[in-house]
Simulated scan of single mutants.
Amino acid sequence: MAHEIKVLIVDDSAVVRQVLAAILSKDPQIRVIAAAADPILAQEKMLAEWPDVIVLDVEMPRMDGITFLKKIMAERPTPVVICSTLTEKGAETTMQALAAGAVSYVTKPKLGLKDFLSESSAELIRSVKQAAQSRPKQFGRAVSATTSPSALASATLTVAHVDKPAPLGALARTTDKVIAIGTSTGGTQALEVILTALPRVSVGIVIVQHMPEKFTALFANRLNTLCEIEVREARHGDRVMPGRALIAPGGLHMRLTRSGAYYQVEVLDGPPVNRHKPSVDVLFKSVAQVAGRNALGIIMTGMGDDGARGLRDMHDAGANTIGQDEASCVVYGMPREAVKLEAVDVELPLDRIAAEMIRFYQKG
């Protein structure tokens, strides 16, 4: 990335503003153009020079960060990185921000800013650089396709285990279908678009959305209130069944297995794969091994290449595969890498993916 990235920091804490500015100023590609104590002051500074990326707190005086974010997205969509504390309340607020159009988030500690400076500086810089490459979008709610609208495993996943064939169970064949979805940056909005468009009875779905622990349960609960289908954070041994979508828990991997003719999920600990936990590749490779041609794989908006090789495995095993097209992606990274590997049968805009999912379920 050759061009300079102009960053605006908005946080009511002077100490946090100083720490974030110090971190970002260390990178020669980033220039902090201003820092503001609240969104009202931030708007004044943005009139003088518009930033490429905004690093935004959510709990501030005069105007909260969510209201400010919605205003930005409505008037001039700009990449926003949320910097929030990882508490239950903070996670819920951050989920609201992601739904409103923020492209990423970093965890801000309540205490220990010096440790944050040394331990999380690389994460913050990486998030800002990735945000600068994104194209934030304001998605509307999809129309429903119908007429009306943790006990975790003690097992541990090793890197070698990712490529190990999953157990097939008692039956060598099954006709049950399954849809596997992998996404990252921009995926919270994109998943809402497609899942809210599905009828109550549809194919069982397994999902990896790159997200840390605490966030995935809140995300799943939010989607569950919006969708006709059941959406929840996956638990070890959960059955994959029609009308249910299971989202991999943050900080753990998820694999598809089979018990007799039924699909289930394993929720496993283990090292990150492609720097991610959960990893899309871990899920997709298991789907290739267990479901083969009875599966549909979908890779959507996100940075990096996680899921590309797994989708190729699914494709080679006879599964149908879809990549979200570049125009509708917030970040056309993961789909691009899958296309390069010739893992994608067809690229579709976001608003057409749900219809293909329904068609996959209905065809014999």
Rank of each mutant, 00 (worst) to 15 (best):
L218H: 13
M254K: 10
Y262E: 13
Y263T: 02
H253P: 10
M241A: 13
R235E: 14
M254A: 08
C227T: 11
E230N: 08
E228T: 01
Q264F: 00
L252R: 15
G250K: 09
D238I: 07
G251Y: 10
R222S: 12
T257D: 07
A248I: 11
A220Q: 08
L218T: 13
L246S: 00
F219G: 06
E228I: 02
F219T: 07
A248H: 10
A234R: 08
G250H: 11
Q264W: 00
G250Y: 13
L246I: 03
H253A: 08
R232V: 05
E230M: 00
E233L: 06
T225E: 13
Y262V: 04
C227R: 05
M254S: 08
M241F: 01
A220F: 05
V231M: 01
N221T: 09
Y262Q: 12
G251K: 08
V265K: 03
V265E: 02
G260L: 05
T225F: 00
V231F: 02
R258D: 01
A261P: 00
L226M: 15
A261L: 09
R235C: 12
F219Q: 05
Q264G: 06
L223R: 11
L252T: 06
G237E: 12
G237H: 01
L226Q: 14
M254L: 15
V231D: 03
